[in-house]
């Protein structure tokens, strides 16, 4: 073999090794916390410098169900997420329509204003929200926690839906009007089906945000409205890493399901969206 092609080949394999070492490192970095939680939840007698536990079992799961009301907590999380979706859509969609479809003078300023709750750290206004909710008796109610969550989900709904509405083909809607459909029929049979991908993206987004929200729940929750993140925090605070791991394994299931839906339904970069236009 010619020495030049030989050295080129060597450089190429060297490059490949570096690339795959980087990818492997990244994969291990991301995956190791999950692997360790599963091992610690099912393992018994895992102390000191050992790679794996002495024996396996489901003791920590039994403990987890005895120590906390996991079924109720999961229900709370789902009810609050559903309420947040309804509130966010009811408030966000009309605003999004006004921004996407109507002539507005200071549109950019309006969008910047709407994004403010997302830009400013939640605690800044969460302290005030907690104070107000105490006087209105909204603390420790599902509605109260959902309203608090809506503060950060509505900006995303407005953002996603106004972009969706703006991209709608106005001629199709006009054609519907020419054929005799009134505004309600046009909305029901034309606008909603045509903007379904956007609505779905918004719903998934609101669900994930509400399901994972910690700060605002922390300021507005009570004994009857403990959500999954709050319960995880309380369990970690109790000091049993194994029990907390067992609860975490149960909590991982909905998160993985959500991940599956996201991969199928929406563009991943929309997840961190919001400041894209700035």
């Amino acid at each position: 073999m010619n020495p030049i092609t030989h050295s080129i080949r060597a450089v190429r394999t060297g490059k490949k090794v570096v690339i795959y070492a980087f990818l492997l490192g990244f994969a291990l970095f991301i995956l190791s916390p999950f692997a360790v939680i599963i091992v610690s939840a099912f393992g018994e007698g895992w102390f000191g410098a050992r790679w794996l536990p002495e024996s396996w079992g489901i003791r920590w799961f039994q403990w987890a169900f005895q120590m906390t009301d996991l079924v109720q907590v999961t229900m709370n999380s789902f009810v609050i997420a559903a309420l947040t979706i309804v509130i966010s859509l009811l408030i966000g969609v009309p605003t999004a329509w006004a921004i996407g479809k109507r002539k507005l003078r200071a549109k950019e300023l309006l969008i910047a204003l709407i994004l403010l709750p997302r830009m400013i750290p939640e605690l800044t206004y969460a302290l005030g929200t907690a104070k107000i909710f105490y006087t209105l008796d909204l603390i420790n109610t599902h509605l109260g926690v959902a309203l608090a969550h809506s503060t950060i989900t509505i900006p995303y709904v407005v953002l996603i839906m106004s972009a969706t509405f703006e991209a709608l083909e106005q001629r199709v809607i006009d054609a519907g009007g020419v054929c005799g459909a009134n505004w309600f029929q046009r909305f029901l049979y034309l606008v909603i089906p045509m903007s379904m991908p956007g609505i779905l993206a918004a719903v998934i987004f609101v669900f994930v945000t509400s399901f994972n929200e910690f700060t605002l729940s922390m300021m507005t929750y009570g004994p009857q409205t403990v959500t999954l993140p709050i319960q995880t925090y309380l369990s970690i605070g109790d000091g049993y890493k194994e029990v907390a791991s067992a609860i975490s394994v149960i909590l991982l299931i909905p998160s993985i399901l959500i991940l599956g839906v996201i991969v199928k339904q929406i563009k991943p970069e929309n997840l961190s969206g919001g400041v894209k236009g700035l």
């Binding site: 999950f34 939680i37 994972n212 910690f214 993140p229 970690i236 991982l252 959500i258 991940l259």
Partner: peptide, 9 residues
């Protein structure tokens, strides 16, 4: 993954 899983876990 880090975006969908609870940060506490």
């Amino acid at each position: 993954l880090p975006l969908t899983v609870l940060a506490l876990i």
